[in-house]
Amino acid sequence: MDELEFMRGRVYGADHDDPGPRDGRVYAELSGGPLDGLLLDVTDRTPADLADGIGLRTEIGRYGPGGRAVYVPRGPGRVLEWRGDLP
């Protein structure tokens, strides 16, 4: 199994021992960029919280450890699309 296949369907920020989605939670899929294929728990976030984008810390983005990958909503569904990386 390659790294992309390993990450697909895992939840961003979840423990490696328990990577899957939980019942009763709402998830958006991250599309593109360094976190492609991961799920983000958006249960407690409003559409306004996500409208301007959300910066997610990642060690595998352009700026390495401490950098952030920015994702914005794509259409009315539950997909967040990568827009770039920030230091």
Rank of each mutant, 00 (worst) to 15 (best):
M1L: 13
D2Y: 05
D2W: 05
E3K: 04
L4N: 10
L4T: 02
E5P: 02
M7Y: 15
M7K: 09
R8M: 11
R8H: 14
G9K: 01
G9R: 02
R10M: 08
Y12S: 10
Y12E: 09
G13D: 05
G13N: 04
A14H: 15
D15H: 13
D15F: 13
D15T: 11
H16M: 11
D17K: 09
P19D: 09
P19E: 10
G20Q: 03
G20C: 01
P21K: 07
P21F: 05
P21S: 14
R22D: 02
R25W: 02
V26Y: 07
V26K: 10
A28Y: 15
A28E: 08
L30I: 04
L30Y: 06
S31N: 11
S31V: 15
G32F: 00
G33P: 07
G33W: 06
G33T: 02
P34Q: 00
L35K: 02
L35I: 04
D36S: 14
D36F: 02
D36P: 07
G37L: 07
G37C: 11
L38C: 02
D41F: 04
D41V: 06
D41L: 03
D41K: 02
V42M: 03
V42Y: 00
V42Q: 03
D44W: 14
D44F: 11
D44A: 14
D44K: 13
T46Q: 01
T46Y: 09
T46V: 03
P47W: 08
P47M: 10
P47H: 12
A48N: 13
D49K: 01
L50F: 08
L50C: 09
L50R: 12
A51L: 00
A51F: 07
D52Y: 06
G53H: 09
I54M: 14
I54E: 13
I54D: 11
I54P: 13
I54A: 06
G55K: 01
L56I: 13
L56S: 05
R57Y: 11
R57Q: 14
R57L: 13
T58K: 06
E59M: 00
E59K: 03
I60T: 15
I60P: 06
G61A: 05
Y63P: 08
G64K: 06
G66L: 07
G66Q: 08
G66I: 10
G66D: 00
G67Q: 05
R68I: 00
R68T: 04
A69Q: 01
V70N: 04
V70Q: 00
Y71C: 10
V72Y: 01
P73D: 08
P73Q: 07
P73T: 12
R74D: 15
R74P: 03
G75N: 11
G75V: 07
P76I: 06
P76Y: 10
P76W: 01
G77W: 07
G77V: 08
R78T: 13
R78E: 08
R78A: 11
V79E: 15
V79L: 11
L80Y: 11
L80P: 15
L80I: 12
E81H: 09
E81Q: 15
W82G: 06
L86V: 15
P87V: 04
